[in-house]
Amino acid sequence: MAHSGQRAPYFTPSLPFTGPIHGGLHDGLMVIISGTVLPTCDSFKIDFQCGPYPSPHADIALHFNPRFEERGCVVCNTFERQNWGREERKDAMPFFKGHPFEIRVLVKHDSFQVAVNGNPFVEYKHRIPLSKVNYLSVSGGVDVAIISFQDTAPPSAWCPRAAGITNAVFLPMQFAPGSTYSSNPAFAPGPYQPQTYPVPYHTLIFGGFYPSRSLIITGTIPLHADRFHVNLKWGEHIAFHLNPRFSEKTIVRNSQLHQSWGPEERGLPGGMPLLPGQSFTIWILCDTHCFKVAVNGQHQFEYNHRVPNLQQVDRLEIEGDVTLTCVQV
Rank of each mutant, 00 (worst) to 15 (best):
R315G: 03
G19R: 05
A294Q: 04
E102S: 10
P198I: 02
Q312G: 02
R315S: 09
D27F: 00
W261Y: 05
L310S: 03
F44L: 10
L223H: 13
Y210M: 13
P155V: 06
Q49H: 06
F96E: 03
R81F: 04
D110C: 07
C326V: 00
T166N: 11
P185I: 15
E123T: 15
V122A: 09
P273I: 08
I238E: 04
D47H: 11
D321I: 00
D59E: 13
P129H: 09
G24R: 13
K97M: 12
P273R: 01
H57E: 14
P100A: 15
Q174V: 15
N134E: 05
R81T: 05
Q6F: 12
A92F: 06
G207D: 05
V169K: 11
S247C: 05
P269F: 01
S214C: 10
M272Q: 14
I147T: 03
H241E: 04
D59K: 06
L62C: 15
V37L: 07
G271M: 02
H109C: 04
G51K: 07
P200K: 02
M93Q: 13
H299T: 09
G277I: 09
L223G: 15
V105L: 13
P244G: 03
Q298I: 12
S148T: 15
S55A: 13
Q150N: 08
F17L: 11
W283Q: 09
L38D: 10
S182A: 14
A92V: 08
I32E: 13
A92W: 01
G235I: 00
H3C: 06
H57Y: 12
V329T: 10
Y10E: 14
L242P: 07
L232E: 03
V142Q: 05
G72V: 08
P198F: 02
L274S: 03
V327I: 14
A168L: 02
D226P: 02
T152N: 12
L215M: 15
M93A: 09
Q298F: 03
S156D: 12
Q193K: 15
V31T: 11
P211V: 11
R266D: 01
Q298V: 14
L223I: 10
W283F: 02
D151A: 05
H202Y: 11
I217W: 02
A2I: 06
E302M: 09
V293F: 03
I147A: 06
G262W: 00
E248H: 09
P129D: 11
K292I: 02
I33W: 04
C76L: 12
V122H: 14
A8M: 11
T180Q: 12
R306G: 07
K249M: 10
M173Y: 00
H305Y: 01
H241I: 06
H241A: 01
K292F: 01
R161P: 01
S43D: 14
P66C: 04
Q6V: 00
Q259S: 13
E123P: 01
I33T: 11
I146L: 10
R89M: 12
D110N: 13
L215Y: 07
F17H: 13
Q311N: 04
V230S: 04
H57F: 13
E87L: 07
V169A: 15
I205G: 07
N254S: 07
Y210H: 09
T78R: 00
C76H: 07
L316G: 00
F170C: 10
